[in-house]
Design a binder for these strands. Sequence first.
DNA 1: ACCGTGAATGCAAATCGTTTGCAATTAGCC
DNA 2: GGCTAATTGCAAACGATTTGCATTCACGGT
Lengths: 159, 159
Amino acid sequence: MNCPEHPHGHSHHAAGAGGRAALPELADQLRRKARKLTGARQAIFEILRRQLHPLSNKEIFAELPKGDCDLATVYRSLHLLEEMRMVKRFDLGDGIARYELLAEGDDGHHHHLVCTRCTAVIEIEECFPRELEQNIATRNGFTAITHKLEFFGICPRCQ
Amino acid sequence: MNCPEHPHGHSHHAAGAGGRAALPELADQLRRKARKLTGARQAIFEILRRQLHPLSNKEIFAELPKGDCDLATVYRSLHLLEEMRMVKRFDLGDGIARYELLAEGDDGHHHHLVCTRCTAVIEIEECFPRELEQNIATRNGFTAITHKLEFFGICPRCQ
DNA sequence: ACCGTGAATGCAAATCGTTTGCAATTAGCC
DNA sequence: GGCTAATTGCAAACGATTTGCATTCACGGT
């Protein structure tokens, strides 16, 4: 039905695709969970691998060789990948889920700087100070505390 | 933006909604914009005034004397209040908009600690360090930079 | 290579939060 | 009281996401 040959060898690794998981790892992780390595999943995985920003389901779907798979399958695949800790979901504040591929062992905890005009996204390494976070946790008796942090502004090009 | 620590993290709230706007101010602001002070708006406003956490449209609707107004009107009223800078919208990460009444002159910039089990919400005074934010802005050539920051964890009761 | 079986998919319909068109009401100024 | 623009209810429209179900497929065992 769908058989994602990848005729164009986009094998150039974008800067930043550095430690990202490669296909064999996907196959591996899937086998480990008794899930199947399907064409759709490979294709989606490859799209994420090539991309440097977080992608929405629709964006991924749009990049898929058309007719390759259903939008519902994209949604299902991303849920699976998320559950397998191979992608991380980001919420940029417009009710649209976006996903980024994770490097092996990466917990994916990082933040973004988003241009409110063109929606360009830059990865940010700064993080909310751990001690402050710990303060907040203990002061309020909370455990398992985490945070979401995103920055918004106007990028050089859009100014 | 500083506030004494609260042993169990209950957010500060004077009996009767600290510095929050009172009805006369609503009337005032509305008149200024040639908008009408309707029953629905008063009721919604009062509900927000009594509440200490962010409320969703549905929650507000549910607290309304039933039949008092339509859910669509709640949505419209909150948009209006937001546009008038009398409420602030918060996005806690589940695609549901929540609103908090603002004190006069308050820009509403603060953050929340949300229990992932019971969704209790506590207001947090800490903020992302301004110099770090400035760093990020200049380093990336961004202007008009802001951030969204929310904390998640498990509250004492739910542990 | 072939089978059996559970996993995965396509498709359409269903959900959920939210928005909108439109005709009927209503608040606020004269 | 009357006029008129603002507001509302209602139902339909929306966009993102999910799901039920019958069909198809991947893959470990043979």
